[in-house]
Amino acid sequence: MVEKPAAEKPAVKPSDVIVKEKVEVVQKEEKPVAEKITIGELHLSGCTGCLVTIADNYEGLFKLLDNYADLVYALTLVDVRHVPEMDVCLVEGSCCLDDELSIEELKEARAKSKVLVAYGGCAAYGNITRFCRGGQWNQPGQEAFVPISEIVDVDLYIPSCPPCPQEVRNVAVMAYLLLRGNEEQKKLATAYLTPLMQLAQRGNEACGCDLMYDVINQGLCMGCGTCAGTCPVRAVTMEYGKPNVNRDQCIKCGACYAQCPRSWFNFDVMNNYEGIMDAIKGAMQ
């Protein structure tokens, strides 16, 4: 809403002057940043695939940055040297114990962010860095890598290697609704984010074996094929209606278990799939 310039309307009572001042404040803002949330990406021992995944939202990334979130910290994308205060910190990569700076920055990110996300398989579960044993150029002395939850408390997991652009988009939109939305939106965002927060509580070890331990062994597998379709390295195949994991090929990214409809299935969110997908689609237009 644009107020008439005060010059056309002589101030006859104090409130006229107050209105004028308010308008000036709003007009001085170059862009309406006040309602956006702030997101940063802390890059530890990862391959930058997670960071690239954010950009894989293409025009959706611009929409996110225009309307919902300011990117306040990210390798190459943001010219900020030190970890700033932020609402949501996406941490990519595992933490190298032989690199003091990694530990310091991770702790700083924890202290300065409201929601700390283990973004991608390495941060959440170690992923491919679980197989590190040192002796690699150009840092042969670095051999100890741990999922970030060994060092700091983590609020939420986004597993897989690489994670999906659509999932980080959904989490960003839901984080926006959680922090800036009305009561109804907060409720939806909480319901949506809860299983990803529960994943963070579940632990930091993942493997295709989870399909055996926590799905088949628990009497929950019905052979839908999701795990095999999800696996980014094709380590899972379906043999006579059940997943078979090639454990030497598994990179321990956590995607298969998190995607399995029998790891969790929250009816309160899923039953409203049409409305939620329309809402996200609408938010991105």
């Binding site: 999906c164 659509q166 299983p195 019905m222 999701t226 995607q259 409809p261 969110v269 799939y273």
Partner: peptide, 24 residues
């Protein structure tokens, strides 16, 4: 799909954790 497979499809769309570029 069977009901469970349709549930899995919706989960893959709402929580596309390892299902890149599938949801739409």
């Amino acid at each position: 799909g069977t009901p469970c497979q349709i549930q899995a499809t919706r989960k893959a769309q709402l929580y596309p954790i390892g299902m890149r570029d599938v949801d739409d």
